[in-house]
Design a protein around this nucleic acid. Structure first.
Length: 946
RNA sequence: GCCCAGAUGGUGGAAUUGGUAGACACGAGGGACUUAAAAUCCCUUGGCCAGUGAUGGCCGUACGGGUUCGAUUCCCGUUCCGGGCACCA
């Protein structure tokens, strides 16, 4: 019987649906295993062959785990809110809900053809009210919480209010936007509105006026991870800094826990490193400097407390509030001029030309260690948002300070023995401290660092600072709070209305607050976000429902928030929702959460390292503090699949003609390379007729061939429509079947690695499946007597070699090497004319995770009535693999040669003795002296001779 | 600039983590079957040299050193490619 993949795959696709083969539920008798893919954004372009790579890899793992007896949760859904659908809506007027729905249906159709073991009954969509109910709910919980540093957890805001009534801000150790100070009496004296404003300083979801990344072209603010090199990640539009009132999430409160949590999870080191960089912990000290001839003082942050004696000037960030306070009247004009200059410069300018600029403020600061008065400068190289927005400059040991000092002719004092600072600063944190204090200078305080190593000096200085109350030891993080408002339509609406300008939460029991209809998706004429176009977008506190805007009286009916939530809102806790997707009482029921715990294996792209993977860890930690999630880390093991790149083909047109030259002879002409659709090129040879038909302007094209063929050039590029290198999985499934596609995608190379797609190699995978099918048909067609007989040792060896290899490979996620193992085993068994069902059965199970359709078909043919998914993974038996011989290697004259085979059952002592007595050594070693005998792994012995 | 990960045939990539480098597949070349094509099957395929031949020798895992009986693997240095962070004090 021929391998008719089309019929086989169709049959099993239908049967899996009919029998709900992949539906799972909590089952206390079995151990759980949770496999998850990063859910896709359903774009209009549909899937290309690169998209399913991770899904296939995780599906193989899910199926393998199931065969090992685990209760496997393997869900799928859609990250359905997002910019492209909205941009499309603006252009066409088509409602994003409609295009999103269409795209989802298209995705589903494509996904269904690939043989995934997804439990679709658990599907989620972020734009579904039943889903974003819990996104809104989580946001409200963040609003109602503050972060307690002492107990390292989120706490209800009422606790904080109580603290304020008891003792004001005294003994307060919480995460906050700015450090406030008031007494209990002052708190009590505040109006309700004032109290609300104060609480905003502490809430985990808070409304604040901050500098944001404003993208005029997209008409929205963006989070830090959505801005790359000063332009928007999506679309590449310029981004500017703007002060706006925005919802923010206090992610920074969790910085240390986000850092610590990395130690407990199995992610790649490089991804962890990326997150560590993003969190950017730095230990240092805050030191207070008094301003000369004034009662003012200010605080700087430094990680190099050891360099206190090398400070020669101070620098403030231009945006710092200190600038106003410390500028002297005679410097005012110069400072104002400089501030105007800085304001004009965009983020982009700052990145592209790194000029040394700055202006003197006119004031001086007293160094608490030397008593010297250091001039205070203002320069854009100091950032307002980090540390205190002010630094002490040590030009000898910081390259930025050095450049500044050289440019403005400020003094440079070296502090490390033997370092040369005539050309550049000495930034390394190694060496012996000197000049601290300088020789011959009357010490200002009784303190010296001279002779210590830099490490010792840092510690000693911190200790001194603490003991003499000159400042405090401080840890700073680069991680910023996440800006949580977007001025867009197609996102989760905030369950918030405004009374007296202060946000109020829509009651929890009224959630979800559904996204209103608007007649256009652009901002309003007054510049409000698109929700400003909604007619029905006001909150009636009496009837507790959404009403028409015309009822707004600010007494009982209030305006609702016009911003929507960003893309990461919906994707931050979806893995929890999959555990209990239809629960309308809570985000995830306790029983479901306790059963499924967290994701055991998460598969997705590394481009989410500083976005989704930070936000969802933060979000989950918050839900953990609330007791909703029982695990602090959402994703135990994470595998990044590499991107599948396109392999573009080129034709070469002679300039100003319609003549195309084959690649081998193109150098003889002046040619322009042009992209050509890869689907009309096979093995880099152009299908000339198809090419002529491809575009009208090529209908009359002429060709200069080589060896009768037109050979195209090629290059590896991103897979995209504009490069004509998109390969559609539907086409592959049509020609070769889903099983072949799955096998080939895995065979392409290591899963983590980026690699170009090349359809040419797929024949090999397809041929293998045919061979495997033929082997199976041979076995199945034998009469029962033959097939029941015991397999030979050679057959068992081939089988168990395969079991061992495949099991190890799946565990290690290196599927690309198990496919050759299948090929080898199949070839071996074919050559052995193996006809034993006892060999075929385990092989069918082994191949089931990779090629589920063919496996099901053969499993049925073997007489089973249940799905192969419910079979048991074969056990590896080492005894079948026992080596028949043991090799002895002989090394002499600096070369290693392989010598004699010993029987496998000879023990090491026997081999060693035999080697020593030269009994079996080759002739050319006769008379040589044994220097040493080394027993190496894999039962080889190595004899070194002289 | 700092941090991380890499570099193996014409191509994608193997190599049990220090033990016969190049598995497997693609591509290429040759052959069988066939009127022919498709399909299928078989052989060759890192480079150089010697031999009619079976075969043998030398060189080879980016480059230069080192450790070792033995290095693609470990250590030091260099070059190149990729990823992350980037006036973060």
């Amino acid at each position: 019987m021929e391998y008719n993949f089309k019929e086989i795959e169709k049959k099993w696709r239908q049967r899996w649906v009919a029998q709900q083969t992949y539906k799972v539920c909590e089952d206390d008798t079995r151990q759980k295993f949770y496999v998850l893919n990063m859910f896709p954004y359903p774009s209009g372009a549909g899937l290309h062959v690169g998209h399913p790579l991770g899904y296939i890899a995780s599906d193989i793992y899910a199926r393998y785990k199931r065969l090992q007896g685990f209760n496997v949760l393997n869900p799928m859904g859609y990250d359905a809110y997002g910019l492209p659908a909205e941009q499309y809506a603006i252009q066409t007027g088509q409602h994003p809900a409609i295009t999103t729905e269409q795209n989802i249906n298209r995705y589903r159709e494509q996904l269904d053809k690939l043989g995934f073991s997804f439990d679709w009954s658990r599907e989620v969509r972020t734009c579904d009210p039943g889903y974003y109910h819990w996104t809104q709910w989580a946001f409200q919980q963040m609003f109602k919480s503050f972060y307690c540093n002492a107990c390292q957890s989120a706490q209800p805001i009422e606790k904080l209010v109580e603290h304020f009534y008891q003792e004001g801000t005294a003994n307060l150790d919480v995460a906050q936007t700015e450090e406030l100070s008031f007494t209990a009496e002052e708190w009590k004296a505040m109006s309700e509105l004032q109290q609300e404003q104060v609480l905003m300083n502490y809430r985990i979801a808070y409304l604040a006026e901050t500098m944001v990344n404003w993208c005029p072209a997209l008409g929205t603010v963006l989070a830090n991870d959505e801005v790359v090199n000063g332009v928007s990640e999506r679309g590449g539009y310029p981004v500017e800094q703007k002060r706006m009132k925005q919802w923010c999430l206090r992610v920074s409160a969790y910085a240390q826990r986000l850092l610590d949590g990395l130690e407990k999870i199995e992610w790649t080191e490089s991804l962890k490193e990326t997150q560590r960089n993003w969190i950017g912990r730095s230990e240092g000290a805050e030191i207070v400097f008094r301003v000369k001839d004034s009662d003012k003082s200010f605080t700087i942050f430094t990680t190099r407390a050891d360099t206190m004696f090398g400070v020669t000037f101070m620098v403030l960030a231009p945006e710092s509030e200190l600038v106003r306070e410390l500028t002297t009247p005679d410097q005012k004009t110069a400072v104002d001029e400089y501030l105007t200059y800085v304001k004009k410069r965009t983020e982009r300018d700052r990145i592209s030309d790194r000029k040394v600029t700055g202006v003197f403020s006119g004031s001086y600061a007293i160094n608490p260690f030397t008593g010297e008065a250091n001039p205070i400068w203002i320069s854009e190289y100091v950032l307002a948002g980090y540390g205190t927005g002010a630094i002490m400059a040590v030009p000898a040991h910081d390259s930025r300070d050095y450049a500044f000092a050289k440019h403005f002719g400020l003094p440079i004092v070296p502090l490390v023995e033997g370092c040369d600072v005539s050309e550049e600063s000495f930034d390394a944190k190694e060496g012996i401290v000197c000049n601290s204090p300088r020789e011959g200078v009357q010490p200002y305080i009784d303190f010296s660092l001279n002779g210590l190593t830099i490490k010792e000096a840092i510690a000693a200085t911190k200790k001194y600072v603490r003991e003499h109350q000159l400042g405090r030891v401080k840890v700073n993080y680069r991680l910023r709070d996440a800006i949580f408002s977007r001025q867009r339509y197609w996102g989760e609406p905030f369950p918030v209305y405004y009374r007296n300008g202060m946000p109020q939460m829509v009651p929890e029991e009224c959630l979800p607050l559904e996204l209103p209809e608007v007649d256009k998706f652009l901002p309003t004429e007054t510049g409000e976000p698109p929700l400003g176009n909604a007619k029905r977008w006001a909150w009636d506190t009496k009837s507790r429902c959404v009403v028409d805007n015309s009822f707004i009286d600010n007494q009982t009916v209030f305006p609702l928030e016009l911003n929507t939530m960003p893309g990461f809102a919906g994707s931050s806790a979806y893995y929890l929702r999959y555990m209990d997707p239809h629960n309308d009482q809570t985000l995830v029921g306790q029983r479901a959460d306790e059963y499924w715990q967290n994701v055991d294996l998460y598969v997705g792209g590394s481009e989410h390292a500083t976005g989704h993977l930070i936000y969802s860890r933060f979000w989950n930690k918050f839900l953990f503090d609330l007791g909703i999630s029982c695990k602090e880390e959402p994703f135990q093991k994470l595998v990044n699949q590499g991107m599948i790149q396109g392999r573009s083909n080129f034709v070469y047109r002679i300039k100003d003609t319609n003549t195309f030259v084959s690649m081998g002879v193109k150098d003889q002409y002046d040619v322009t390379p042009l992209h050509v659709d890869v689907n009309i090129v096979s093995a880099d040879v152009l299908d000339i007729e198809a090419f002529k038909a491809w575009r009208p302007e090529y209908a009359t094209a002429e060709f200069i061939l080589e060896d009768g063929k037109y050979v195209c050039g090629w290059a590896v590029e991103k897979m995209s429509k504009s490069m004509f290198n998109v390969v559609n999985p539907d086409m592959i499934v049509e020609r070769f079947g889903a099983d072949t596609l799955r096998l080939y995608e895995m065979f392409l190379g290591p899963i983590e690695q980026a690699k170009p797609w090349d359809t040419n190699g797929i024949d090999g995978s397809h041929r293998f499946l045919k061979k495997f099918w033929n082997l199976a048909q041979n076995i199945l067609s034998q009469n029962t007597q033959d097939t029941e007989s015991t397999p030979s040792s050679a057959e068992l060896k081939a089988l168990h070699k395969l079991i061992k290899k495949v099991t190890e490979d799946i565990e290690a996620f290196s599927y690309n090497t198990s496919i050759p193992a299948f090929m080898i085993a199949t070839n071996e068994l074919t050559q052995l004319k193996c006809n034993k069902r006892a060999v075929l059965e385990p092989m069918v199970i082994l191949i089931a995770p990779f090629a589920p359709h063919i496996a099901e078909e053969l499993w049925e043919a073997l007489g089973h009535t249940t799905s192969v998914c419910d079979a048991t993974w074969p056990k590896f038996n080492e005894s079948y693999l026992a080596e028949e011989t043991v090799k002895m290697m002989v090394a002499f004259n600096g070369k290693t040669r392989f010598g004699i085979d010993f029987p496998a059952d000879a023990d090491n002592a026997t081999i060693e003795a035999a080697a020593r007595t030269h009994e079996q050594t080759p002739k050319y070693l006769e008379g040589r002296q044994i220097v040493k005998v080394i027993i190496v792994p894999k039962r080889m012995i190595n004899i070194v001779m002289k």
